[in-house]
């Protein structure tokens, strides 16, 4: 697919607008710059999935949904199989998770979660419902305030910080990363989960906290 991240693309376009003064620096940086996106070609730093969800929400856009489906449905299925589901059940649940994404597109808040995070929470709740046959109490929903559209800067910042979190996760020593994955596949009880994840969660936590504060402010 697309090989440039959002920032790469911006750098290519910018000289036209900014004039030649900064061009040499940019050229130099491009030569030295290492690719920001991951080896497997996924594009976590891009915000395009956010746009896909908006197109589903605003226009019931089936083409946008098909692309989201192609990317996320197999991952949800793989996640559910690793969580102990058989393939047939995982297939059915992955379809239901994607259908939920369609129906709940208006509830997605890109200043607090990436689309991947949001899909994860839907898949997790599906697993609790179907595999554990248990209700899942959730905190009270924080509805959107009067200003419906989130600030693009906030959206971009959250997406980038999540990309950094993902880099940190993949950079962890193998044994530690496996422990975290096992926790999320449901292979560790809450007694076995160690709070020391070794992951830099402080930045992303502060970012989400700011988004919550803005929501509270808008509600009052």
């Amino acid at each position: 697919m697309v090989m440039f991240t959002e920032s790469d693309t911006a750098r290519l376009d910018e000289p036209v607008a900014d004039g030649p003064v900064v061009r040499p620096l940019r050229v130099k940086r491009r030569i030295k710059g290492r690719p920001v996106n991951h080896a497997n070609g996924s594009c976590e730093t891009r915000t395009e999935w956010v746009g896909h969800v908006a197109r589903i929400r605003d226009a019931q856009d089936q083409a946008a949904f098909a692309e989201l489906f192609q990317h996320f449905a197999p991952r949800v299925k793989a996640f559910l199989i690793k969580s102990g589901s058989d393939a047939a059940m995982a297939e059915e649940c992955a379809q239901e998770v994607m259908a939920t994404l369609w129906h709940k597109a208006h509830l997605f808040d890109p200043t607090r979660a990436t689309v991947a995070t949001w899909v994860f929470t839907i898949a997790r709740n599906k697993r609790i419902d179907v595999l554990r046959r248990q209700r899942r109490p959730e905190p009270e929903d924080l509805g959107w305030g009067p200003e419906a559209e989130p600030d693009q800067h906030d959206v971009m910042a959250l997406q980038q910080e999540t990309a950094q979190l993902r880099d940190a996760l993949t950079a962890l020593p193998e044994a530690q990363r496996e422990l975290i994955e096992k926790a999320y596949f449901g292979d560790l009880s809450h007694r076995e989960i160690a709070s020391q994840t070794g992951l830099p969660l402080g930045t992303i936590k502060s970012r989400i906290r700011l988004a919550l504060d803005r929501l509270r402010h808008a509600m009052n």
């Binding site: 497997n40 996924s42 976590e44 098909a66 489906f69 192609q70 996320f72 449905a73 197999p74 991952r75 949800v76 299925k77 793989a78 996640f79 199989i81 690793k82 297939e91 992955a94 379809q95 607090r112 979660a113 990436t114 991947a116 995070t117 949001w118 899909v119 994860f120 929470t121 898949a123 997790r124 905190p139 999540t162 979190l165 993902r166 996760l169 993949t170 975290i180 994955e181 999320y184 596949f185 994840t197 992951l199 969660l201 992303i204 936590k205 502060s206 989400i208 906290r209 919550l212």
Partner: peptide, 29 residues
Amino acid sequence: RARAESFDAVGGCVLQEQDAAVSMNDGSL
């Protein structure tokens, strides 16, 4: 809540790391 949602983000990263070896059935979409 912000702390909990940052742990959700870890789950999102784990989901993204799932390899593409698993595919959906024909006619799934």
